[in-house]
Design a protein around this nucleic acid. Structure first.
Length: 582
RNA sequence: CGGGGCGUAGCGCAGCCCGGCAGCGCGCACGGUUCGGGACCGUGAGGUCGGAGGUUCAAAUCCUCUCGCCCCGACCA
């Protein structure tokens, strides 16, 4: 491709509404163009990268028996009503009506449709297993799109669905997808960390997230350097330690003016925060959830939501508390009616905690679960924190941030049961089909790589996904001899099977070099009067500061070898991976 | 949805308080000089000042409403 023909305008300054470095570079390099918040066009360079990533995805999915299909983006609402997600999922699901006023859905994922396919097509266990995948547009009305391609409202996702006659078959297959996922990310040039995760709106029994570790990530991960335990903070378990055993003492009210927080309370009473019980309030629909946790810990909302069996948990507002007669800052479940009390298991086994007296300015000493109040649910609802004890080995864990670039879910029979997708087993009995779903966000992956693979001059793409292999800089092109040598080299490079972007513009050297760096093409070749005088082209890796001379007649072959070497370097990272489990 | 910020030429910004000709840099077009890491000189094109309403002799500027974009939080895969 000649630069004079390429639809690509590079910017010297990045648009002011771009925050992340990777996003800025994608904009400056002319890879993407925003249309609205979280909605982007891919320009030719961006589209080429998407195709590179998609090709890797196809190869890896095909290698584990995947068959590519294409499912609609527009769905009738009935299908989503059948699985209950029409009701369960909030405004994130895009809904619309067609001209006949029928409710429709813009797909955010495709479990419903693929399960509908199964119930129409599959009758016997002999037709299973089957792995179907597609690379398709997804729509999610994110409350807050941000970070360029990292978090968008419309995006391309590779989603795959495996369907099995037995749980054992799924269990045997799942690790193959897991391995294929690692292969995909490594071939695309990045390392990810797989962690066990919450099943969230997908439902099901086991899930992994493939996290690209990055400071800009929005997910928090718990990692143990000692034993390798890793989990999303949403579900991370940890060791809470044993409270000192103590005989229950008599309840006692004390005046504690102006101590609405645990910190002020502990200071006033001169006790550690761990000797207090903290109340936190959430709404599950119109049900008020009264969560009780030890004063030195935080509530993990995902654990709490799972405990009460809801997808929609939101912090309670002052008016919610007022309606229930709860005094914020001085609340405890003692004597409070009409709410769901969820007590962290650590609180349940900690004697004599200080808790609110349910009137302003007073607390109760020596509260004990079971004696002073009853819990509707006792379970683990505490959030892991930096330095908490690892659940597996007890050593302190570390909190890191990550971007979820892929996920895998064992769905079980959640969808097949709801939609009646069954097959007959060996005994001629109808069984719900066992399913799993697997996603990888293509744009998010590219955005993550852009954020990671760059320097102060611009992007530095892994050769496996770079839009072009070689950036051919032609200088002094008004000199006929140089121009003809450049044209010849351009043709030779292509004849070597290389993808070449040939900068034949009437620009000064600095402009072309800077553009080459900005665009992040792995290999740069320069041909100029000076180079020609030496009978050579100059060859430079994007990652190296200096160029070297390559005799003209060898230049194309050397370039091919360099690209092959870069590719092998990346592919050498592909290796077997053990399933991460708790 | 809560808090904060910003909408002026393709991009980056000034002008707004204190109302009075719509500006600067980059980019773009043309001419010339340059020519190996974002050159220089000259000429030029390009703007319903996000939109609507109001105040005023007069609004980019003041007031009201509204739309959009960004950041933090809430939420979410």
């Amino acid at each position: 491709m000649r630069r004079t023909d390429l639809f690509c305008e590079t910017l010297r300054q990045s648009p002011s509404d771009a925050e992340l470095a990777g996003h800025q570079l994608l904009l400056r390099g002319g890879y993407i163009q925003p249309l609205a918040a979280g909605i982007y066009s891919l320009l030719p360079l961006g589209q080429r990268m998407r195709q590179k990533v998609e090709q890797i995805l196809r190869e890896e999915m095909d290698a584990i028996g995947g068959q590519e299909i294409s499912m609609p983006v527009l769905h009738p609402a009935e299908l989503w009503q059948e699985t209950g997600r029409w009701q369960k999922i909030g405004p994130e699901l895009m809904r619309l009506k067609d001209r006949a006023e029928r409710d429709m859905v813009l797909a955010m994922t495709h479990e419903e449709v693929v399960t509908d396919l199964l119930r129409r097509q599959v009758r016997s266990y002999r037709q299973l297993p089957v792995m179907l995948y597609q690379i398709q547009t997804k729509l999610r009305d994110e409350p807050r799109a941000r970070g360029g391609l990292i978090r968008v409202r419309e995006f391309t996702m590779k989603d795959a669905y495996s369907c099995h006659a037995t749980v054992e078959d799924l269990d045997a297959y799942y690790p193959r997808v897991y391995q294929a996922y690692f292969n995909v990310f490594r071939r695309a040039g990045i390392e990810v960390t797989a962690v066990e995760s919450d099943v969230g709106m997908m439902g099901g029994t086991m899930a992994h997230e493939f996290m690209f570790l990055s400071e800009i990530g929005e997910d928090q991960l718990v990692m143990c350097d000692s034993c390798g335990y890793s989990a999303n903070r949403q579900i991370a378990l940890f060791v809470k330690g044993e409270p000192e055993p103590e005989e229950p003492k008599a309840l006692e009210e004390v005046a504690t003016p102006n101590t609405p927080t645990i910190a002020t309370l502990a200071r006033l009473l001169e006790i550690p925060e761990s000797r207090t019980a903290k109340a936190a309030f959430f709404m599950a629909g119109d049900r008020l959830i009264f969560a009780v946790i030890r004063g030195d810990m935080e509530v993990n909302e995902t654990k709490l939501a799972n405990a009460v069996g809801t997808l929609e948990l939101r912090p309670a507002r002052p008016e919610d508390l007022q309606a229930a007669g709860i005094v914020a800052g001085y609340a405890s479940p003692i004597g409070v009616e009409g709410v769901t009390v969820v007590v962290d298991e650590l609180v349940a086994r900690s004697p004599n905690l200080v808790a609110g007296a349910n009137r302003p300015g007073y607390h109760l000493l020596n509260t004990n679960v079971g004696r002073d109040y009853e819990a509707d649910i006792v379970t683990d609802i505490a959030a892991a924190y930096e330095g908490a004890g690892c659940v597996r080995c007890g050593n302190p864990v570390r909190m890191v941030r990550g971007i979820e670039v892929g996920n895998t879910f064992k769905l079980g029979t959640e969808y097949s049961h709801a939609l009646g997708a069954t097959c007959l087993d060996e005994n001629g009995e109808a069984q719900d089909i066992i399913m799993a779903s697997y996603g990888i966000g293509v744009g998010r992956l590219i955005g993550s790589i852009a954020q990671e693979c760059r320097d102060e001059k611009g992007l530095i793409w892994p050769v496996t996904i770079a839009p072009y292999h070689v950036y051919l800089v032609g200088l002094d092109l008004d000199d006929e001899a140089v121009r003809s040598a450049a044209e010849t080299l351009y043709a030779q490079l292509q004849a070597q099977g290389l993808e070449v972007l040939y900068d034949d513009r009437k620009e000064r050297a600095g402009v072309k070099f800077n553009d080459a760096d900005l665009l992040g093409i792995p290999l740069r070749l320069t041909i100029s009067r000076r180079a020609l005088a030496a009978g050579a082209a100059e060859l430079k890796l994007r990652t190296e500061p200096e160029s070297r001379k390559a005799p003209l007649e060898e230049a194309a072959a050397q370039a091919r070898n360099e690209v092959a070497r870069l590719r092998e370097e990346i592919l050498a990272r592909v290796r077997p991976e053990e399933l991460a489990v708790r």
